[in-house]
Amino acid sequence: MGIIFSFFAVIALIVIVFIGVQGANLHYLFGVVIPYAAFFIFLLGVIYRVLQWGRIPVPFRIPTTAGQQKSHPWIKTNPIDNPFTATGVFIRMAFEVLLFRSLFRNTKAELRDGPILSYGSTKWLWLGGLAFHYTFLIILTRHLRFFFEPIPGVIKIIESLDGFFQVGAPVLYLTDLIFIAAVTFLFLRRVVIPQVRYISLAQDYFPLFLIFSIGLTGVLMRYFLKTDVVGIKELTMGLVTFKPVVPKDINIIFYIHLFLVSTLFIYFPMSKLMHMAGVFLSPTRNLANNNRAEMHVNPWNYPVKVHTYEEYENDFRDKMKAAGLPVEKE
């Protein structure tokens, strides 16, 4: 169900652009108003979600990590998988954010004849995920050529490395190929593996379809349908300098690309895509395991009325003495 719903949701988005741009000539709405709205919803939405998360206390360090905790000096500890210090945490976070370390530990379970339940490691999700995220990052960085003038040299270096094989004109970017392949893989994974299909919902399929269509419209625009790239840059530069202009004659494929991107940006703060910020706030990753060494006070504890031994003795000293019990203070 989710898959069909998501598919038609994306188709509907594309139809909206056809009606709005081709039919009703709303170039300004689709070229300026919606992108601005999407940008600010994205910005404020992400900040709001992160602040909401920040208000939730995590009093106790969660030590379910794959390494030996720091304890006696003669037990070998694992300072990265089970860090005790801030430096250790930083290294663990860097591995997590940059290399998706916990995904690397992904396992699969199989029921074999016998019946025997066997577990094995699978690296495909890790590899696909890494390929997807890094090509996404490179593509996004390359897109910055539309938002700077003069264009920073790094972007040109990335472009020439990306087009290293100099196939065709315009030059084929390797990241485009890998990106489309990786999204396709991530989608097929959800459809082909029964256990994963069982837990997949519309909110899993929708971002995949959306991102796939963004990539597809981008690729179509660059290699096949062609559009006025100079005009597009005038539009984007107008957006970043807050003097919006809408050059005419920009092909509808650009408006589709832009509207799908806008949808992604609007959808972002209210979806699972927030893992972009969430990964930095994962309690199992970003807290040093020093439960035993340091006192962590639970902030929602109500004040407990305590009666110390000292007070007890003060109250009953005479009676204790009379009964012949030992007291600490005379």
């Binding site: 910005l43 938002f147 700077f148 003038e149 530069m237 970043v240 300098t241 807050f242």
Partner: peptide, 17 residues
């Protein structure tokens, strides 16, 4: 995060128009 996102707006460059 905000700084990165605002980069194009702040440094759109002298040839922006």
């Amino acid at each position: 995060f905000v700084g990165l996102i605002a980069l194009p707006f702040v440094f759109s460059g002298k040839g922006a128009s």
